[in-house]
Amino acid sequence: MEFRYLGNSGLKISEITYGNWLTHGSQVENDVAAQCVRAALDVGITTFDTADVYANTQAETVLGDALTGERRESLEIFTKVYWPTGPKGHNDVGLSRKHIMESVNGSLQRLRTDYVDLYQAHRFDTETPLEETMQAFADVVRQGKALYIGVSEWTAEQIRAGVALSKELGFQLISSQPQYSMLWRVIEAEVVPTSRELGVSQIVWSPIAQGVLTGKYKPGQAPPEGSRATDTKGGSSSIKGFMTDDILTRVQGLAPIADELGLTQAQLAVAWVLQNDNVAAALVGASRPEQVQENVKASGVTIPAELLTRIDDVLGDGVVTDPGQTTARAPQTRPV
């Protein structure tokens, strides 16, 4: 396992980071989730990412249980706040001071830790003044409940405003967590250049495009039984945008490139996002321990420039690059 600095900080994280969205507390039984976490630790992953909203707080509980007994100082534990949780009352959502302060305490209790290494704004809150949000994060840091602050799916302008306030308030906003893959490159035009300038790194989710870049989905064929595309608990809805015959046909054309590098298509996809020097880590999930063991082989891989060009040629206009997608897909009001 290789490690990278997160933003303009002294914090190093494993460049393959274990995430438990859509799995722990939902798709995967708790004993299997614990086996996946154990597999991650065994292959050198030290960084674990979750959120209070995953399985309505249950994912944090499962992760906290699975990490019990591990040396806390040897781990980097990340979580997030924004989406509705608990009974989903009128203040159980957003980035108000009230919700942040109550949410961080709940997350720490479920994760069985006194602090998280990174506390992330899971979306931008259009209904709370940014100054209020950033002051609350500053206080969370000063109270020792989080060491650093990050954001997820913020635009370049929102990141710039957040970083400016964090500097005024004396804490570090060091990361952005966007969707990023060979097929979804909307951060490249604006978010990445702005982040480089400001000392912010990307921790990218869905580097395998919800499993599409593994090549297991074939054009004109039904999805394999038990795959994410057949899951009714959220998996199928999250993947449907990639499930067109055009995209699936293009993805099949990546197989020879993966073969040249001695990689699976999934490993190629994870290695591809790590070629971007503004990416500190690729988030990978797992429903089986073997998936962790396979995906970690993408760490340390260098893809030659000529193969990167071939990947672009194969995927062609199947790639989404419009930076406006970040705003288009963001909640315009607080969800209830």
Rank of each mutant, 00 (worst) to 15 (best):
G211K: 03
A189N: 08
E290R: 09
V93C: 14
A51M: 07
S166Q: 00
V186E: 15
A161P: 04
T68E: 14
A136R: 14
D92W: 06
T57G: 03
G64V: 13
G150N: 03
V284S: 05
S299R: 10
E2T: 15
D231V: 02
S195W: 07
S206C: 09
G94D: 04
V163H: 10
V81R: 09
E76L: 13
P304Q: 05
L268W: 01
E127F: 13
Y18D: 01
R329E: 11
G7K: 06
P84R: 11
M1V: 13
S96C: 08
D322Q: 03
T194F: 05
T113C: 05
F171T: 03
R97Y: 01
T23W: 09
K80M: 05
Q291F: 06
K167L: 13
G241Y: 05
E60P: 09
L67P: 00
R110T: 08
T46F: 03
L111M: 03
G19R: 12
F78P: 01
I303P: 05
V116R: 13
V186H: 11
V251L: 02
E73L: 08
L75G: 04
G25D: 02
D114N: 14
S107Y: 10
L315P: 00
W184R: 09
T309D: 07
V251S: 00
D65S: 12
A138E: 10
G324Y: 06
E132L: 11
H99A: 08
I303R: 03
R310A: 01
L254T: 01
P304Y: 05
K218S: 13
L67E: 01
E76G: 15
E225W: 00
T50S: 14
A222F: 07
G285W: 06
T17L: 15
G262N: 11
E294M: 02
G69I: 03
S299N: 03
G162T: 12
A271S: 10
G10Q: 14
T133P: 00
E73N: 15
T113V: 11
D322K: 04
